[in-house]
Simulated scan of single mutants.
Amino acid sequence: MFSASWIASPQLPSEGFTPNWSREGFWRQSVRQAVRLSAGGARVRVRLSHAYGTSPVRIAGASVGRTAAGAAVRPGSLVPLAFGGAGDATLPARGELVSDDVPLTVAAGESVTVTLYFDTTTGPATFHAQAFTSSHRGDGDLTADTGGAGFDAATESWYFLSAVEADSGRADAVALFGDSVTDGFGSTPGADRRWSDALAERTGRPVLNAGIGGNLLLNDSAWYGEKGIHRLRRDVLDQPGVDTLVVLLGLNDIGFSETDEQPTYKPAPVLEAEELIAGHRELIRQGRVAGLRVIGATLPPFGGSDHWGEHAAKVSHELNEWIRRSGEYDAVVDLNRALADPEDPDRLLPAYDFGDHLHPNDAGYEVMAEAVSALL
């Protein structure tokens, strides 16, 4: 049985947080992307998404292998990918494409590298903005290249690649659903120190990261993805092998209205706790209908950040108390208390603060993983 071993939530092409290639797309180029698996197996397959495409994309070639340094692939591990038995395929606009499975023995915690070759113009590319690891681009068909020297450009985003699945036989994956805290902002780039990575290491279970930096529970955003209550099905419920959902969402709905300095913090309506509670109830409902155990996470402290203000403080306290005390979630992980500074509980403990008073650092993400692992 194939189950998801790694995922990334698709996003609309946009300028993004850091320079990326989503708007320009690709032409006569290969894109090489490394991802860390959370479940192993003897065979793998990849899933490609063009959820935000307006025209089909031709995949002229593709391969997968074990990751080596930089853009290199371990010699002897590179395997061509096929689609319905053919070496090329069409990725439909607003659709997805799943490769045939191929023999490649991989272990949980191991990274694999997927290479895609585009011989015609793709147009703007569906992507995931914040990968916190490097993807590489080079001219021509480099799908069979193991050395990586032909890849002469890099960004920290993933393109078209939305999942790698393995024949792990596992049906106990944990999906983390959230915003930039789940996505891994503040963790060390290239080191796989997100809280999803830490949780997989602690529990030995597949852990899928369905975070999008800046994501909102109740509103769509041009930069930060579709609203949580709409994207949950595509990004989590339709993934094979998931049995537990952890929800950590609402911080941006509360905080975007506290500042006018970021033009991308739009829409930013001033919301009350009751509106966010209704959104959480909708996520719980969807998860339960899909047969998942649904765990609620309290929002981490964010006092002193650009998301903080008098109204944000009030609403975050009310939402967290509802998550803790309502009994509507199957279980609750209190990340707010786990990460708080005892001297000022509205702020992150300095040892866990990335530096913006909003995002944890590597140590903070370890604490988050430890807290939720006790519930699994």
Rank of each mutant, 00 (worst) to 15 (best):
M1N: 12
M1P: 11
F2G: 03
W6M: 06
I7V: 15
S9L: 10
P10G: 12
P10Y: 06
G16F: 06
F17N: 11
N20H: 11
S22F: 07
E24H: 12
G25L: 10
Q29G: 04
V31S: 06
A34M: 12
V35E: 01
G40S: 08
G40D: 05
R45V: 00
R47L: 12
R47N: 06
L48T: 01
G53H: 04
P56E: 06
R58V: 14
I59N: 03
G61F: 00
A62I: 01
V64A: 01
T67Q: 13
A68D: 15
A71E: 10
S77Y: 02
L78F: 05
L81R: 00
G85F: 01
A86G: 08
T90N: 07
L91S: 05
G95V: 05
S99Y: 00
V102F: 03
P103A: 09
L104G: 03
A107C: 09
V114Q: 05
T115S: 14
L116K: 01
L116G: 07
F118R: 04
F118M: 07
F132S: 13
S134L: 14
G138V: 04
D139N: 11
D141F: 05
A144D: 14
G150Q: 08
F151K: 02
W158T: 08
L161H: 00
S168V: 08
G169I: 06
A171Q: 12
A171V: 03
D172S: 08
D172C: 09
L176C: 15
T182W: 05
D183R: 02
D183K: 04
F185C: 10
P189H: 12
A191V: 09
R194Y: 08
R194V: 05
S196D: 12
A198S: 13
A200W: 00
A200H: 04
G204H: 09
L208T: 01
G213C: 12
G213K: 03
G213M: 00
N219E: 14
S221G: 14
S221F: 09
A222M: 11
E226H: 12
I229T: 15
R231K: 12
R233L: 13
R234E: 11
V236P: 01
T244M: 10
L245P: 04
L245I: 09
N252H: 11
F256E: 03
F256S: 05
S257K: 07
S257A: 15
E261P: 00
Q262S: 13
P269L: 09
A273V: 07
E274W: 08
H280G: 10
V294Y: 09
G296L: 08
T298P: 10
F302L: 13
S305H: 02
A313T: 11
K314C: 14
K314D: 14
V315Y: 02
L319T: 07
R325T: 15
R325S: 15
Y329I: 05
Y329T: 04
D330W: 07
V332H: 09
L335P: 01
A340P: 06
E343R: 10
E343Y: 02
D346V: 10
R347V: 00
D353L: 08
D356I: 05
D356P: 03
P360Y: 12
D362E: 13
D362N: 15
E366K: 04
A374S: 13
